[in-house]
Simulated scan of single mutants.
Amino acid sequence: MIGGRIKSLRIKKGYSINELSEKAEVSKSYLSYIERGIQENPSLQVLSRIARTLDANLEDLLEENKEQITDLSKLDEEWVSLVKEAIGQGITKEDFTYYLEFIKFKKMDGGKA
Protein backbone atom coordinates (compact mmCIF):
# COMPACT_ATOMS: atom_id res chain seq x y z
CA MET A 1 0.00 0.00 0.00
CA ILE A 2 1.39 3.35 -1.07
CA GLY A 3 0.15 5.09 2.06
CA GLY A 4 1.95 2.69 4.34
CA ARG A 5 5.22 3.16 2.48
CA ILE A 6 4.85 6.95 2.63
CA LYS A 7 4.13 6.84 6.36
CA SER A 8 7.08 4.54 6.98
CA LEU A 9 9.47 6.81 5.05
CA ARG A 10 8.03 9.89 6.78
CA ILE A 11 8.64 8.38 10.20
CA LYS A 12 12.18 7.28 9.24
CA LYS A 13 12.86 10.87 8.17
CA GLY A 14 11.52 12.12 11.51
CA TYR A 15 8.79 14.23 9.92
CA SER A 16 5.39 14.77 11.43
CA ILE A 17 2.47 14.64 9.02
CA ASN A 18 2.33 18.46 9.30
CA GLU A 19 6.00 18.83 8.33
CA LEU A 20 5.72 16.53 5.33
CA SER A 21 2.53 18.25 4.27
CA GLU A 22 4.20 21.68 4.31
CA LYS A 23 7.46 20.58 2.70
CA ALA A 24 5.74 18.59 -0.09
CA GLU A 25 3.03 21.22 -0.57
CA VAL A 26 0.26 18.66 -0.11
CA SER A 27 -2.67 19.37 2.18
CA LYS A 28 -2.47 17.64 5.54
CA SER A 29 -5.89 16.06 5.12
CA TYR A 30 -5.05 14.70 1.65
CA LEU A 31 -1.74 13.32 2.91
CA SER A 32 -3.56 11.73 5.83
CA TYR A 33 -6.07 10.13 3.43
CA ILE A 34 -3.19 8.70 1.40
CA GLU A 35 -1.40 7.32 4.46
CA ARG A 36 -4.60 5.74 5.80
CA GLY A 37 -5.47 4.17 2.46
CA ILE A 38 -8.63 6.23 1.96
CA GLN A 39 -7.09 7.89 -1.11
CA GLU A 40 -5.51 4.95 -2.95
CA ASN A 41 -4.66 6.61 -6.27
CA PRO A 42 -2.92 9.93 -5.73
CA SER A 43 -1.59 11.64 -8.85
CA LEU A 44 2.00 11.15 -9.94
CA GLN A 45 2.59 14.86 -9.36
CA VAL A 46 1.62 14.53 -5.70
CA LEU A 47 3.62 11.32 -5.31
CA SER A 48 6.65 12.97 -6.95
CA ARG A 49 6.53 15.89 -4.50
CA ILE A 50 6.19 13.53 -1.55
CA ALA A 51 9.00 11.26 -2.79
CA ARG A 52 11.33 14.19 -3.44
CA THR A 53 10.64 15.58 0.05
CA LEU A 54 11.40 12.18 1.59
CA ASP A 55 14.64 11.83 -0.44
CA ALA A 56 13.09 8.85 -2.20
CA ASN A 57 11.97 8.13 -5.73
CA LEU A 58 8.63 7.07 -7.16
CA GLU A 59 9.73 3.45 -7.31
CA ASP A 60 10.26 3.49 -3.56
CA LEU A 61 6.63 4.49 -3.11
CA LEU A 62 5.11 2.33 -5.84
CA GLU A 63 6.96 -0.98 -5.56
CA GLU A 64 5.21 -3.42 -3.32
CA ASN A 65 7.27 -5.84 -1.26
CA LYS A 66 10.49 -3.98 -2.14
CA GLU A 67 11.91 -4.44 1.34
CA GLN A 68 10.18 -7.72 2.07
CA ILE A 69 13.15 -9.95 1.27
CA THR A 70 16.60 -8.42 1.41
CA ASP A 71 18.52 -11.44 2.67
CA LEU A 72 18.08 -14.47 0.40
CA SER A 73 19.38 -16.77 3.13
CA LYS A 74 16.08 -16.06 4.91
CA LEU A 75 14.05 -17.29 1.92
CA ASP A 76 11.72 -20.01 3.11
CA GLU A 77 12.15 -23.58 1.88
CA GLU A 78 8.98 -23.52 -0.22
CA TRP A 79 10.35 -20.68 -2.38
CA VAL A 80 13.68 -22.47 -2.76
CA SER A 81 11.84 -25.63 -3.80
CA LEU A 82 9.72 -23.73 -6.34
CA VAL A 83 12.79 -22.12 -7.91
CA LYS A 84 14.60 -25.45 -8.09
CA GLU A 85 11.56 -27.04 -9.72
CA ALA A 86 11.32 -24.21 -12.25
CA ILE A 87 15.00 -24.63 -13.14
CA GLY A 88 14.49 -28.37 -13.42
CA GLN A 89 11.61 -27.78 -15.83
CA GLY A 90 13.90 -25.68 -18.04
CA ILE A 91 12.53 -22.23 -17.17
CA THR A 92 15.18 -19.65 -18.05
CA LYS A 93 15.87 -16.33 -16.35
CA GLU A 94 14.33 -14.65 -19.38
CA ASP A 95 11.17 -16.78 -19.02
CA PHE A 96 10.97 -15.96 -15.35
CA THR A 97 11.37 -12.23 -16.04
CA TYR A 98 8.60 -12.46 -18.64
CA TYR A 99 6.28 -14.17 -16.13
CA LEU A 100 7.01 -11.54 -13.49
CA GLU A 101 6.23 -8.73 -15.91
CA PHE A 102 3.01 -10.48 -16.93
CA ILE A 103 1.96 -10.88 -13.29
CA LYS A 104 2.68 -7.19 -12.61
CA PHE A 105 0.59 -6.25 -15.64
CA LYS A 106 -2.29 -8.46 -14.49
CA LYS A 107 -2.22 -6.88 -11.04
CA MET A 108 -2.21 -3.35 -12.46
CA ASP A 109 -5.01 -4.25 -14.90
CA GLY A 110 -7.10 -5.73 -12.11
CA GLY A 111 -6.92 -9.18 -13.71
CA LYS A 112 -8.95 -8.09 -16.76
CA ALA A 113 -6.39 -9.00 -19.40
Rank of each mutant, 00 (worst) to 15 (best):
I87A: 15
E94I: 13
D95W: 13
I50Y: 02
K28R: 15
D76P: 08
M108T: 14
W79D: 14
E77M: 12
L58D: 00
D95S: 11
D109I: 05
D95N: 15
A113W: 13
N18W: 05
R5T: 06
S32V: 07
S32I: 02
S8D: 12
E67A: 11
T70K: 15
K84E: 15
M1N: 07
L9G: 01
S81K: 14
K107D: 10
L62G: 06
I38C: 00
G37I: 02
N18I: 11
I87C: 08
E101C: 04
E19G: 03
E63Y: 03
G111H: 05
E19P: 01
Y33P: 04
K112I: 07
Q39D: 09
S16W: 08
N18Q: 14
K112C: 05
I50A: 04
E85N: 12
L9Q: 07
Y99P: 00
V46K: 09
F105Q: 05
D55K: 08
T70Q: 14
G4V: 11
E40L: 08
S73T: 15
P42E: 12
F105W: 11
N41C: 04
G90D: 06
S43F: 09
L31I: 03
E94P: 00
A51D: 01
S73A: 15
E63T: 12
R52W: 05
I2L: 13
L100Q: 11
S16F: 02
S27E: 09
G110V: 07
R5I: 10
Y98I: 10
D109E: 14
G4S: 13
L20G: 07
L72R: 06
E78P: 00
L20I: 03
N57Y: 07
F102D: 07
K12R: 10
